[in-house]
Design a protein around this nucleic acid. Structure first.
Lengths: 159, 159
DNA sequence: GTACCAGTGAGCACATTGCCCAGTCGGAGC
DNA sequence: GCTCCGACTGGGCAATGTGCTCACTGGTAC
């Protein structure tokens, strides 16, 4: 589970320049190609690296508005609500949480007006008691993993 | 900005099997290799596809706990808080929002106990007035874009 | 009709991949 | 101390994919 320093450098390098191949990585890191290949295989079968899917920008697709909705669910309706939300394309992500709400989901929409349509579709389902929505204005820190990977690699080193 | 049906199929195919190359894609889609190559170049320079970074699973790195924190910021301290949060590796994402809170951030931690340390570090900063945290229990819908891409492609078709 | 754009199918040199091997090194176990 | 084992190295191989170019076609706008 824990990654060592070399694993960390591989992931960071890959995150910064995804297009580079195994050979180029081995050159930059100063290790043999087979080593990088073996590490990568291990990281993937470990599940540390889930995949290399394309990162798509919803804004560029015509969905510039992002929002987070906190949902309160009627007791026992959780599974139905999950299934319902999974059918809405504008729901990019869904979590069940502790705290005030029962679920938190990330939404996108074509405009603020369109967001109303999306929310109606999301909450237009029996098991949802209440929803409160926060519209995203800015995204100062986009989803990132590099600092965490570096942290994890250093923790390992100290051990 | 808008993507057509072929663009949609390219992205979906790529999302499902990231390792396949341009040549294999052209075979599956029944179009010429040059076409796929040109489309991909356009999608990337458009910004629709931001990149192909590795998807790292924080849980596999030793951070199995995810939480969302809603922060209230003292007037005028926004920039400082942003800068502060950017230095915390466990902050994976940060948004400024409308609504009850002023910011929403995604955190990870090594354990529920460790989450306390992370939160202390996050809110241990002058500009933050209040924080309320929701711990993620389940993730029924992991971050996804395929349904949205298909939606966008169909909308385009209808036009 | 002409110009233009997107797609096609083909060809080319080149680099990279996936795979195999023999050899070295360091640590763990006996 | 000795041996075994796993990880890393450096090399070599055939096969494949890449980046690039070309001439040609079909549809569309002017």
């Amino acid at each position: 589970m824990a990654i060592d320093h070399l694993d960390g450098r591989i992931i960071v390098l890959l995150a910064r320049e995804p297009r580079i191949g195994v050979l180029e990585m081995s050159r930059r890191l100063g290790v043999a190609r087979g080593t990088v290949q073996a590490r990568l295989d291990r990281l993937q079968s470990n599940g540390v690296i889930r995949g290399f899917g394309p990162e798509v920008d919803p804004a560029a697709l015509g969905y510039p508005v992002t929002a987070f909705a906190t949902l309160q669910i009627r007791q026992g309706q959780g599974a139905d609500v999950r299934a319902h939300l999974a059918t809405v394309p504008e729901v990019l992500e869904l979590h069940t949480t502790t705290g005030t709400g029962d679920m938190l989901c990330r939404l996108v929409a074509r405009s603020n007006a369109d967001l109303q349509r999306v929310i109606d579709r999301v909450v237009g389902f029996d098991g949802i008691v209440r929803a409160s929505t926060a519209i995203v204005m800015e995204n100062p820190v986009p989803l990132r993993i590099i600092p965490l990977v570096e942290q994890a690699a250093e923790d390992r080193d100290r051990t």
